[in-house]
Computed example of a mutant assay.
Amino acid sequence: MLSKKARKFISLTLSLAIVIFMFVGCSSQTQKQTDNNQGKVNAGKLSGKIEVDGSSTVFPITEAMAEEFQKMHKDVKITVGVSGTGGGFKRFTKGETDISDASRPIKDKEAKIAQENGIKYKQIKIAYDGISVLVNPQNDWVDNLTVEELKKIWEPNSKVKTWKDIRPEWPDKEIKLYGPGTDSGTFDYFTEEIIGESGKIRTDFTASEDDNVLVQGIAGDKYALGYFGYAYYVENKDVLKIVPINGVKPTTETIEKGEYTPLSRPLFIYVSQDSFNNKEQVREFVKFYLKNARDIVPETGYVPLKQEVYDKQLEELLSGK
């Protein structure tokens, strides 16, 4: 039988062993949490940065998505730039951004730069837009324009200087023109569909990649005319007047049904494959984007796709196709 002194020694030894075991376990758990933090996820908590740039047309959608996502994940910082589709692709193809907003498909020369820099990506269709032609609300003479008249106004070396040059019964007042800059996907699409060649246009107009600048210009001049994405009209209906083209006014219904031609078009985001695979915050944001597009896209003034289209794109992303 053990003496009282021996029993006391064994009890102290066991207690010390338990303390050491608990300390080692806690250290192991702390290290595990540290490792997880480096991998952006800790017990379901997301953190890190997401860099987005590109189309001012797509900006309202991505900004709305970012705001909703950050309500759930307050430690994720999402920066959304508006350098235009072309400007966004310049950064994206160099690997400077995780996601590029685009109001047109990537061009062959841009795709080549991405390939040369080892940037692999996935194109995701997110919504439909109808490029809208706008005038000042005080304009009481324009109730429709034809595609031919738009071309006459905007073509290189255009002879149109006044409204009277379009139709003789209209005012003999100078037209002040506003439109997206050359880095804009809207500029590319409009010139291709209206002029017949991408990038060809008259040069004497106020250009900006920021559609809010165009809104302010048209809203402040009775004789102004310009064009940009439908959502910016929806957001500024009180200071803008929309012009039907070939007798069709852009609305959610005419855009969705393809009746508003030729200025209806799809909108995209381009996702870096490396960012999607290796940054948990980017992967979760893109998943959130596609799962919630049907609800959020209409709130921004654009037309959503059918849910099965979003689901299929997400499935392809996750499967690595």
Rank of each mutant, 00 (worst) to 15 (best):
K241R: 14
D211N: 15
E51C: 00
S103T: 07
E197L: 10
P168C: 00
R265W: 06
E116M: 08
G179D: 01
T252C: 00
I119K: 05
L263V: 05
G247K: 04
F23C: 06
E96P: 01
D108Q: 08
E316Y: 03
I99G: 14
F205N: 07
E51G: 01
G44E: 12
E299W: 02
Y189F: 15
P60W: 11
R202Q: 09
P266S: 11
E315M: 07
T203E: 14
V239D: 01
P298D: 05
S275P: 02
A43L: 10
W163K: 04
I245P: 03
D295C: 01
A293M: 09
Q33S: 02
K40Q: 07
S83W: 08
V215R: 09
V24Q: 12
F228L: 13
I119R: 04
L150H: 06
E192T: 08
S103G: 15
Y230R: 05
G220V: 02
Y233A: 00
T79Y: 11
D53C: 04
E259N: 11
D188C: 13
V160N: 05
T97C: 01
I78S: 04
E284C: 00
D140M: 04
L12Y: 11
K94D: 11
S47N: 10
T85H: 12
G320H: 10
K249T: 15
L214H: 03
L305Q: 10
D295R: 08
I50D: 05
W170R: 11
P137T: 05
K173A: 15
D295S: 09
L46F: 09
V80K: 15
G86C: 08
F276Q: 04
K122G: 00
I20T: 14
Q33A: 07
W170Q: 12
L2I: 07
K306D: 15
A111W: 01
D143H: 12
K112Y: 12
E197R: 12
A102S: 14
A66I: 09
G320I: 12
P298H: 03
N37G: 14
K257H: 09
P298T: 02
K112N: 12
E193T: 13
K40S: 01
G48M: 13
L225D: 01
F276V: 06
N212M: 14
D143W: 08
E51M: 07
Y189H: 08
G196N: 15
I61P: 00
L305F: 14
E192I: 06
N278C: 06
